[in-house]
């Protein structure tokens, strides 16, 4: 049944968000820490196990895949409901702070990728070129 997949997805999200809220409470901030990330890990673990034991039927998969394929339209709706006007009106401080932090963060992506990769190569003690990465 399609609803089994959607229900599994819902269960993971709720459990993850509750866990993230608890984590926030434990460290003393009234914010969710990684709730969605925890939910994603839960879904990966559970669906992996169900798939291995062959207990996940095609309709169940569809109940999850539908929402996964709704992702881009949902992101478009998200973009359309942002406070773009406030961002435009923020003036030079907001603009310069936003632009600088984005440019520096972009530049850091290859640098941090390289640091981690060196560790990975050492532990695996074999040389992988960047092309070999999946």
């Amino acid at each position: 049944m399609v609803i089994y997949g959607t229900a599994l997805l819902s269960g993971c999200l709720i459990a993850g968000v509750v866990a993230g809220q608890l984590l926030g409470y434990l460290v003393g901030v009234d914010k969710n820490i990684g709730g969605v990330g925890i939910a994603m890990l839960l879904l990966i673990l559970i669906s992996d196990r169900l798939q291995r034991s062959g207990r996940i039927q095609p309709p169940t998969r569809q109940g999850i895949l539908f929402w996964s394929s709704m992702y881009i339209p949902i992101v478009v709706a998200m973009a359309a409901s942002q406070d773009v006007l406030a961002a435009v009106k923020g003036g030079p401080i907001a603009l310069i702070a936003g632009v600088t932090v984005v440019l520096i963060s972009f530049a850091l992506v290859p640098i941090i990728s390289r640091i981690g990769k060196a560790d990975l190569e050492m532990t695996k003690s074999k040389t992988l070129s960047a092309k070999d990465e999946p």
Binding site: L13, M70, I74
Partner: peptide, 26 residues
């Protein structure tokens, strides 16, 4: 559009994209 692009459905769809991802990648 505010409901569709709000955090509830956005988080729901984000979690759904994790379906089929392999654990070892993480």
């Amino acid at each position: 559009i505010g409901i569709m692009g709000g955090s509830m459905l956005r988080d729901f769809a984000i979690v759904a994209t994790a379906f089929g991802v392999r654990m070892d990648e993480f």
